[in-house]
Design a protein around this nucleic acid. Structure first.
Lengths: 186, 186
DNA sequence: TTGGATATGTTGCTTATCCAACACTATTAA
DNA sequence: TTAATAGTGTTGGATAAGCAACATATCCAA
């Protein structure tokens, strides 16, 4: 297989598949979408689907990953340190992303989706924390990034299940507790 | 080369090329559009362009042909005889088509474009005339179809260069002369 | 139970697309 | 003139996409 990011055929086909998957996700639940549905919608051969993805779960992961890249990564890539602003942006980004694609594939796959989101968050937080602190703490900072990611994801789940306040009003009082772990010397 | 109408790869690529060509035609004159421009816009390889078309003139012909098929052929395919209604529809169809794509590629290629349109018209008129008249006159009817096509195209050119009347007002008084040749026994 | 229908992965072979390179032409600038 | 630049059209070899066929699994109705 040549590089999926450079070969124009692969880029086109990959986009066709993911776009078709998103289209179908607006009409059906994830569990009711078959590989054949996707390849019909994309007007590509079924064998070609398996050339790009292992199965529809793999597609789900990669589609979510790609959605995350365009949504979350883009919004958060400019921050130089983990501060109040970034916490708020992160919270907004997670909840926005959830509304865009993730919630449509929700039923039965929340664990898959959440793992992807948390991984991504960790990969965003970790290098920023490294910049903020001395390099010698790197392994502790890795764990800080992980805890921070799980925590941020957790509060977003909490907010989703009980939307009695605006997002800002909800996240604001929590921020000090979050930053406590981030700023404290470990 | 496999069938360009059935192989999904060929259909996609062909559409990409023609759509890109139409997009570029909205920005530049035909003579300023290079094959490289088209393939860049279409994100396909330049060699692939030459797999589908001989050169950009061939593309022009086929793009026009395809535009004609969706515009003119569709509007006129239901007629059972060449009568006043059909003359009017034909006139409208030619002038509509000209506004849609043809005029953008006009400069220097009016002869190419007109030949394509007239050929198409002949292929529409001839079988209808055959139905209308006895089969023994077929060679004379071929010439009738040709004259009718040239004539219809000619009056559309005349109308374009001097749009002082509405299309209907312009074509109405000409209809009797047109139908004279059609209905007269040769 | 059995059989039909539907979806999943996989495979061998064909074919369209990609890419890099080439020769050629035309234009432009030094 | 010469050299540089940009477009055209072609070729050979590599590779993704298409297609048909197969084995397998699941489900549902007879």
């Amino acid at each position: 297989m040549s590089n999926p990011n450079t070969d124009p055929r692969m880029r086109r086909t990959r986009k066709l598949i993911i776009d078709s998957f998103i289209t179908l996700s607006n009409k059906k639940e994830f569990k009711d979408i078959t590989v054949t549905d996707i390849t019909n919608e994309a007007t590509i051969n079924r064998a070609t689907f398996y050339y790009h993805f292992e199965d529809k779960f793999d597609l789900l992961e990669q589609a979510l990953e790609e959605g995350l890249i365009t949504n979350i990564t883009f919004d958060l890539s400019d921050y130089e340190e983990v501060n109040e602003d970034m916490i708020i942006s992160t919270f907004i980004a997670i909840t926005n992303f959830w509304n865009s694609l993730a919630h449509r594939c929700q039923s039965g796959y929340e664990d898959t989706i959440s793992r992807i989101i948390i991984d991504k968050l960790t990969n965003i937080f970790y290098p920023i924390l490294l910049k903020q602190h001395s390099i010698s703490e790197s392994s502790a900072l890795k764990n800080t990034a992980i805890m921070l990611s799980w925590g941020m994801y957790g509060v977003s789940v909490e907010w989703r299940t009980n939307r009695q306040q605006s997002r800002k009003a909800f996240i604001q009082p929590i921020i000090p507790y979050i930053l406590l772990g981030v700023n404290k010397k470990q």
